[in-house]
């Protein structure tokens, strides 16, 4: 593992003004419009924490993960890894990827169908210059760490394993390079509940043993609650709220966060949800509303919300939200 250079107080990741628009091409190849997938977001990830990222489809959480890994190039903004910017002035993308790994949602699609579990892990190690014998040993050690006996599972192909076992292989590949940050993009969402619990326990163990920092992306609010120290809420490419998990889950400030939590299923037939907190679907990220992007579905919206975009403001120590109603810019709301 590479050294912790910035000290414990230095955030492992600082994200500033990150933006990514995907062009939509018309039939003649001209750019007709842009999907505003991620639009100027900023946050930090502290060493050793689990930052949960929640939001609905199209809010930009997966794009954010890919931007952090530099699998796609940002249009603007910077990512600082433990004090070093990414690029020619700081650490290389290759170095970044050695220190930061990602586990995808689809355990089947993210494994090469022609590679055995061991081969899949060895590939990444060889990329970083490890000899083939040593790489095999390291791969087996990683498999053991995720609870798969290399003698039994090392030579299996993806189709010869269950969903939970495949996701363990994906995690083993992620930790084999001894990264400091693991990005988990909906990594347990596709698993059956009984298997999901096993994998969540495994992730908790690995985090302690390997001193990892997690960025845990999920649409499942219960899972995020279970694993996170802090939670980031996204809506249509913007960060709407970020704060400690107990604040976000206990005393959410942003109307969207509150509606999202009120949409959770009760888990108790005696306490069924009586009315849906929001109506309709999230708007199209190609043409987001002006000002506050949530205003079209917000019960508190006024003209001020259409006129200007609310910025993230500190409303309690470590707890920020972006809403005019909270910062007094809207007269006497709620």
């Amino acid at each position: 593992m590479s050294a912790d250079r910035g000290g414990p107080a230095q955030p492992i990741l600082i994200v500033n003004g990150l933006r990514k628009y995907f062009p939509l091409r018309g039939p003649l190849g001209t750019i007709d419009a842009h999907v505003q997938a991620v639009d100027g977001i900023g946050f930090d990830v502290r060493k050793g924490e689990t930052l949960g990222v929640v939001g609905e489809s199209g809010c930009g959480k997966s794009t954010t993960a890919r931007l952090l890994m530099r699998l796609i190039e940002p249009d603007a903004g910077e990512v600082i890894f433990d004090g070093d910017p990414i690029g020619h002035r700081g650490i290389s993308i290759r170095e970044l990827r050695r220190n930061m790994q990602m586990v995808f949602q689809d355990s089947y699609a993210s494994l090469n169908p022609r590679h055995t579990a061991t081969e899949e892990i060895v590939f990444g190690l060889r990329v970083h210059g490890m000899g083939s014998k040593q790489a095999r040993e390291q791969a087996h050690a990683s498999l053991r760490l995720v609870g798969l006996e290399p003698g039994q599972f090392g030579d299996r192909y993806p189709h010869e394993m269950s969903g939970g076992q495949r996701q363990r292989v994906n995690i083993a590949r992620g930790i084999a390079l001894n990264p400091r940050v693991l990005i988990l993009d909906e990594s347990v969402s596709a698993l059956d509940k009984s298997v999901q619990a096993q994998v969540l326990n495994l992730l908790a163990d690995l985090k302690d043993r390997l001193n990892l920092t997690y960025v845990f992306i999920s649409h499942d609010l219960n899972v995020v609650h279970h694993v996170s120290d802090r939670v980031l809420v996204m809506y249509l490419g913007k960060v709407v709220e970020i704060g400690p998990v107990e604040r976000i889950y206990g005393d959410a400030a942003h109307p969207y966060t509150r509606a999202l939590f009120a949409s959770r299923l009760s888990m108790d037939p005696a306490l069924r949800v009586g009315a849906a907190p929001l109506s309709g679907d999230p708007p199209n990220p190609v043409r987001p509303p002006s000002g506050c992007r949530f205003r079209t579905r917000c019960s508190l919206a006024t003209q001020a919300c259409a006129a200007s975009e609310p910025l993230l403001r500190e409303i309690a120590p470590g707890h920020q939200a972006a809403c005019h109603a909270l910062t007094g810019e809207m007269a006497d709301a709620a």
């Binding site: 993210s110 990329v127 590949r173």
Partner: peptide, 20 residues
């Protein structure tokens, strides 16, 4: 995703083409 995952390990295009 597995090609994306291979890119995420920092592998070069040539290596990914040959092995994946």
């Amino acid at each position: 995703d597995y090609v994306e995952a291979a890119r995420a390990t920092g592998a070069s295009a040539g290596r990914i083409i040959v092995q994946h």
